[in-house]
């Protein structure tokens, strides 16, 4: 079973995302900011990361840049999931190594469509 790390400072969002991901057949793990997420990845690299942008400690963009410099940090498929919905943010995320991008609010259909596009589900 593939693992998806859900990185978001909102407990409610993490719970919603986890429920959707479990239906899609993922094992899930949670982190509340970039620092926690990095610790998680250094222990065990997940197959997928659903990543919020604005978080305390370390934001999503900074986390992604650091992740891609880690050994094996290129492996996880990273999908941003954020309220930032302008082209500048999206472009910046893609340049930093994001694979897909979800604009909040999201629902199960959107997550399923995006995970399919990212090649995580058939």
């Amino acid at each position: 079973m593939k693992t998806c790390l859900v990185v978001d400072d909102s407990r409610v969002i993490r719970k919603v995302a986890r429920r959707i991901l479990e239906i899609l057949g993922f094992e899930t793990a949670e982190a509340a900011d970039g620092v926690e997420a990095m610790a998680w990845c250094r222990t065990s690299m997940p197959e997928a990361i659903l990543l919020d942008w604005n978080m305390p400690a370390m934001d999503g963009l900074e986390f992604l840049k650091q992740l891609r410099r880690e050994p094996a940090g290129h492996q996880p498929v990273v999908l941003f999931c954020t309220v930032e919905n302008d082209l500048e943010h999206i472009t910046e995320a893609l340049e930093a190594g994001a694979d897909e991008y979800i604009m909040k609010p999201f629902d199960g259909d959107i997550v399923c469509a995006k995970f399919t596009q990212a090649g995580l589900i058939a």
Partner: peptide, 20 residues
Amino acid sequence: NQFEVQRGLPIRLLVRHFDK
């Protein structure tokens, strides 16, 4: 709308072909 462009459209095609 935002919902429609997130169903089936890869993000890179959104960036390449759409304006907000």
